[in-house]
Simulated assay, not measured.
Amino acid sequence: MQLAAPSGLMSLFLFIVAVGVLALLAGGFWMTSRVRYRESPRPRPEEQPKLPPEGPVHEVRENRESAEIPRIPKGERPLTPYELTNMDTRTNASKERPRWSKGSSGSFGGGGLGAH
């Protein structure tokens, strides 16, 4: 019964917790203002980037094809991924975009039947 009785000690504890939470919030605002004060100022409108004199840069679309993977003669050791690095790509002469085969989902594990 005594535990269920209202106590002034519990009220004091809740008041101290509330004051602690408010102190943490005030400390957070104070720390944020100190960090912002140390940052460089925001750029003024005249310091913003400008368009180049020739105008906006436009997107270039091209198809790329990769270099062939070297063929390994029978009986020799296969190449490791580290030996296949820096394989360049080159511009494909064909301007036609590659398409997925008919009946394929277009992705690995996409749930479709695939090209049968």
Rank of each mutant, 00 (worst) to 15 (best):
A67E: 15
L14M: 10
S33P: 00
M10F: 13
S107R: 11
E68H: 12
P45Y: 04
L9C: 01
A93Q: 02
S101L: 01
E46R: 03
R77D: 07
W30A: 02
E54T: 08
N86S: 12
R99G: 04
N63E: 10
A93M: 02
T32R: 08
S105D: 08
A23P: 00
M87H: 15
S40I: 06
H58N: 14
T89D: 15
P43R: 06
T91F: 06
A93P: 00
A115L: 06
Q48S: 02
W100T: 07
E68S: 11
V60S: 06
P43Y: 03
N86V: 09
M10A: 11
P52A: 02
K74A: 13
F29K: 02
E54F: 10
A93T: 03
V19C: 01
E68A: 14
T32M: 09
L25R: 05
G8C: 02
H58V: 14
R42C: 07
Q2R: 14
S11W: 09
E65T: 09
T80L: 09
S107A: 04
G114M: 01
A4W: 09
R99T: 12
W100N: 04
G112T: 13
P52S: 05
R97P: 04
P78I: 00
A93N: 01
S104F: 02
G8S: 07
R71Q: 15
Y82F: 07
N92A: 08
G8V: 02
E76F: 13
P45F: 00
R38P: 03
S33F: 06
I16C: 08
V21M: 05
Q48N: 02
L9N: 06
P73W: 15
R90V: 08
N63I: 13
K95W: 06
R77M: 08
E54M: 05
V21N: 03
S94L: 01
P52E: 06
K50P: 00
A67T: 14
E46K: 03
S94T: 04
P41A: 00
E76Y: 15
T89H: 15
E76C: 14
R99Q: 15
L84E: 11
S33Y: 09
P98A: 07
I16V: 13
S101M: 03
A26R: 09
E46M: 01
N86K: 12
L51F: 10
L14T: 13
V60W: 07
G106V: 01
G112K: 15
P81A: 06
E65R: 15
S11L: 06
R90T: 12
G106E: 07
G114P: 05
L22C: 02
E54P: 03
E47A: 01
R44V: 00
P41C: 03
G110Q: 04
A93W: 05
G109E: 01
H116C: 06
P41H: 00
A18G: 07
W100P: 00
V19H: 03
L79D: 08
L24V: 11
L9W: 10
R71G: 09
G27Q: 14
P45S: 05
